[in-house]
Computed example of a mutant assay.
Amino acid sequence: MKTVTMKDVAEHANVSKSTVSQYLNKRFDYMGEKTKERIEKAIEELGYQPNIIARSLKQKSTSTIGVIVANILHAFSTQVIRAIEDHCHESDFHIIVCNADDNPEKEKKYIEMLLAKQVDGLIIFPTGGNVELYKRLLKANYPIVFLDRMVEGVNIPSIMLDNEKASSLAVAHFIEMGYERIGMITTSTSLNVVTRIERVNGFKKTLNANQLPMTEDYIKSLEVKEIQNSLENMLKQAHPPQALLAGNDLVLMEILKFVKAHSIRIPTDLAIIGIDDVGFAELYNPALTTVAQPTYEMGKQAAELILLKIQGKNEMDDLNRFEPTLIKRESC
């Protein structure tokens, strides 16, 4: 079957090739409605498909953004991706999503693959393990934005939650409800993931500010597979914590599994608050108190910022913090 060309469309619509090109690139502010209708009808009747590769070579743009998430299992990741995709779609950009599994080597391979595909920019939830690569991209003035995390010594714009405040809101609510022995579990800080470190710092600062005991046995940063055993050891102590803060949604899931397996009553036996407002929080029995992130707004701002950088503009601060919100329900 003969490939339909832009010239065929132009002849079928009785217009010039340049007019068809303007139509395809949505530069038709001064184009008459009847002309647009003829071109649209010609494209439909001929089954014309624009050559995206040829267009990207000509424009030196693939209209594509790479998004590398640290762990796609997080509800936060999928919610933010949706916001990025929505905003990029409005600007006729596509996204390619990659999951690094919090593995610096995997992240490095994805960055190199996306660069080989000539994506116009990158939004990365950085593992923190590729500092020299981040710096090379920065030095080359390549459009890049960090999301959810920042990396010390790398001056790439970052969009983050006020993580210390997120923990502080949770601890303050525990205290308000009368709890004194308060614990926290977060995923591993072995890679110096700033988000997790800040949440632990906010937890400790709020306990100190309220002159409450800070028991190191109640504060754990672990691999997900280690959480069940740690909970067993923590809760079988003579004086176990009365309340637990889950540092993210994956930790919350592990705590809820443990609670169910050991017939622990919430909040009678153990009060729980989770950072990240998971979709089932309101449906769980009892409904779960959470600290929510403005995920959609954060994803939208990441998309806005990367598109500005692709255009050679940067009208936002290097660090953009978003406010967390405590959603009071029945688990505390």
Rank of each mutant, 00 (worst) to 15 (best):
N208V: 04
N208I: 04
N210R: 07
L212Y: 04
P213C: 06
M214R: 06
T215I: 13
T215K: 12
D217K: 09
D217F: 03
Y218T: 02
I219E: 05
L222C: 14
L222Y: 12
E223S: 11
E226V: 00
I227T: 06
I227E: 03
Q228F: 12
Q228K: 14
N229Y: 07
S230I: 02
S230K: 09
S230G: 06
E232R: 11
E232W: 00
N233D: 11
M234I: 13
K236R: 14
Q237K: 09
A238G: 09
P241K: 04
P241M: 05
Q242H: 05
L244H: 05
L244C: 05
L244M: 13
A246I: 02
A246H: 06
G247V: 13
G247T: 09
N248H: 04
L250V: 00
V251F: 07
M253F: 13
M253N: 09
M253Q: 11
L256T: 06
F258C: 03
V259D: 09
K260L: 10
K260P: 00
A261H: 07
A261T: 11
H262K: 12
H262N: 15
S263E: 15
I264M: 11
I266K: 05
I266Y: 01
P267Q: 06
P267I: 13
L270E: 09
I272Q: 00
I273C: 08
I273D: 08
G274A: 14
G274W: 04
I275Y: 10
V278R: 04
V278W: 00
V278M: 11
V278A: 08
G279F: 13
A281N: 03
L283M: 15
Y284R: 01
P286H: 11
P286N: 10
A287E: 10
T289K: 12
T290C: 11
T290A: 08
A292E: 12
Q293N: 05
P294A: 12
T295H: 00
Y296L: 03
Y296E: 07
E297K: 10
E297S: 12
E297D: 13
G299K: 03
Q301T: 14
A302F: 07
A303M: 03
A303H: 09
A303K: 06
E304C: 05
E304R: 07
I306M: 04
I306K: 04
L308I: 01
L308K: 13
L308P: 00
G312C: 01
N314Q: 14
N314G: 03
